[in-house]
Design a protein around this nucleic acid. Structure first.
Lengths: 162, 162
DNA sequence: GAGCACTAGTTAAATTTTGAACGAATGCTA
DNA sequence: TAGCATTCGTTCAAAATTTAACTAGTGCTC
């Protein structure tokens, strides 16, 4: 387990650059989105996931795990969107504990109106700066990290065997 | 300005991988930090910045802009840390409007105790997976994006001249 | 040096997020 | 099938965050 207590300096620089830029990027995208659409980043993301789902509906739990939201956060998020008419909620047919969030026509419209602006933001603030090799690098790196984190979380949920 | 309405598919994949992994990474690091130290990610970051600053003190505004926090969020953050004894607050000598956050001995100790664990998390969940070329790529990409966003925000703060 | 626009930071109210506890339904095991 | 651990999602209270005033101080312009 030989572990040093710190990051080597090139990795520390990478870490700091990543943290700062990610924070700025997120802030900027959220601001752009709100400026042109009444949607938060979370709203937008919910709309995307629902619009891509079969029947344009998803179980609360499934949605929460894709958004990486806590259950209660998702409950709040969905009721807020429901209040604004973008989604409705229906009881789940095969599991009476569950419910599903369903995209409404208004929700789909909101997504269609916001998407071009939002995607333009993503391009402007992030993607336009990247060459193909860099895009490939990001996909590879973050894909791998996401996989690992997804797996480790799935593993630790199930109670530990001695 | 010929702009398409969407991202090409490799960029879209990169974007999605990045967003998901970033969110998971942040969640995981925060959880690790709390599990082993009573500190939030924000607390930790404040401690790092103060510990590196000359006199181990920084103006509120300076700290806010480095953390990418709104002024009121920083006020809240610092009072919370003050309550817990990690920082103190002193009026700024040369500008009576201002104040500075000062690292306390307890704050420095908390940082020293948390750092090895936190850095181990960063390594485990992010850096250990990356080869040198990938580290270089991240540094370059996020450095550039951070610079651009910092610049564009600085520019838009000052009111627009027609 | 008075007036005025701007900056620093705080405060207050509303919104969002977390975390723990809960009620209801499921499904496994005996 | 009774019992019990687990899962699904919500609720409630507490903590964090945002947003919009607002106070105080600065510094420029005349």
């Amino acid at each position: 387990m030989g572990m040093t207590e710190s990051l080597d300096s090139t990795r520390e620089a990478a870490w700091r650059a990543y943290i700062e830029a990610s924070q700025r990027l997120y802030t900027q995208l959220e601001e752009d989105l709100r400026a042109e659409s009444d949607l938060s980043f979370a709203d937008y993301h919910v709309l995307v996931l629902l619009s891509e789902a079969p029947g344009q509906r998803l179980r609360m739990g499934e949605l929460a795990s894709r958004l990486i939201f806590s259950p209660s956060r998702l409950t709040y998020q969905i009721s807020s969107m429901q209040r604004r008419g973008m989604v409705s909620k229906e009881p789940c047919p095969d599991d009476r504990r569950g419910s599903e969030a369903v995209l409404t026509a208004a929700g789909l419209l909101a997504l269609r109106e916001a998407a071009p602006h939002h995607l333009a933001s993503v391009r402007t603030h992030l993607m336009d700066d990247l060459d193909d090799a860099e895009v490939a690098c990001l996909t590879r790196v973050f894909g791998r990290i996401g996989d690992r984190l997804r797996a480790s979380r799935a593993g630790s949920t199930t109670h530990a065997t001695s």
